[in-house]
């Protein structure tokens, strides 16, 4: 696939929730393309549908109507099993509150997605070690999440997101729970993953300073995108 071909294509994407007889449209007929290698920040007021959109892109929620095309293949109409497999191969998720498994060590948390891949034994160990090393937390491999700071936990979560080498990272407020210094470290890391390792990153954030790290900033309001600008 060439660089110019988009990684994501959204066509007429609509999502609405029904509360009783009322239907609440979150977005209606959204069209969008996301290029391969993009680092996109999505901003917008609370309740504007940022998380909902990310869920469509990540294949953990289906649109009411419309298409989500990833790498030339429709994913919105895949079954649960096929979607699970697709997620394990193509997407890394990073959450605001890290969502690590409290019973597993940092290394085991990072290893978790590899239980879904054919990678075994020494190769698996090497991948886990590399991922932990990339996020600069190799010395904490045996620590449990409760023994790590918020910033360190988020690094482990990033390592977990990249260990299976997905094409895209979907981040929902990845720095929302962190202080400025830790937030900047995490954002620099995401930037590195984007520029040096070619990961496409879509990041939802409330923080304009965080959005500055992205190549493109989008503003979602009342179901429509307002482009704030691209640095390239």
């Amino acid at each position: 696939m060439s660089k110019t071909e988009p990684l994501y294509v959204l066509r007429g994407l609509s999502k609405q929730y029904s509360r009783g007889k009322e239907t609440i449209p979150i977005f209606d007929g959204l069209d969008m393309e996301i290029a391969n290698g993009e680092f996109m920040a999505i901003m917008g007021p609370s309740g504007s549908g940022k998380t909902t959109l990310l869920n469509q892109l990540g294949g953990i929620d289906a649109p009411t109507t419309g298409e989500v095309i990833f790498d030339g293949r429709r994913i919105d109409n895949l079954g649960q099993g096929a979607l699970a497999k697709w997620r394990s191969e193509n997407v890394g998720f990073i959450f605001q509150f890290y969502n690590l498994m409290p019973t597993l060590t940092a290394a085991q948390n990072v290893e978790l997605p590899l239980l879904l891949s054919p990678v075994k034994g020494a190769e698996r160990k090497k991948r886990v070690a590399t991922a932990l090393d990339i996020v600069g937390i190799g010395d904490r491999a045996k620590h449990y999440p409760r023994q790590l700071s918020g910033g360190q936990q988020q690094r482990v979560a990033i390592a977990r997101a990249i260990v299976a080498d997905p094409k895209v990272l979907l981040c929902d407020e990845p720095t929302g729970d962190l202080d400025r210094t830790s937030a900047d470290e995490v954002l620099e890391m995401l930037q590195l993953l984007n520029t040096k390792m070619g990961k496409t990153i879509i990041m939802v954030t409330h923080d304009p300073a965080a959005a500055k790290y992205a190549k493109t900033e989008l503003f979602l309001d009342k179901g429509k995108f307002i482009k704030k600008g691209s640095k390239k």
């Binding site: 649960q80 699970a84 497999k85 997620r87 998720f93 959450f95 498994m101 978790l112 977990r160």
Partner: peptide, 14 residues
Amino acid sequence: TKEIAVMKTLGFRT
């Protein structure tokens, strides 16, 4: 519940 949701997100099947 949340951990299970995370595992599913990672691609663990039902």
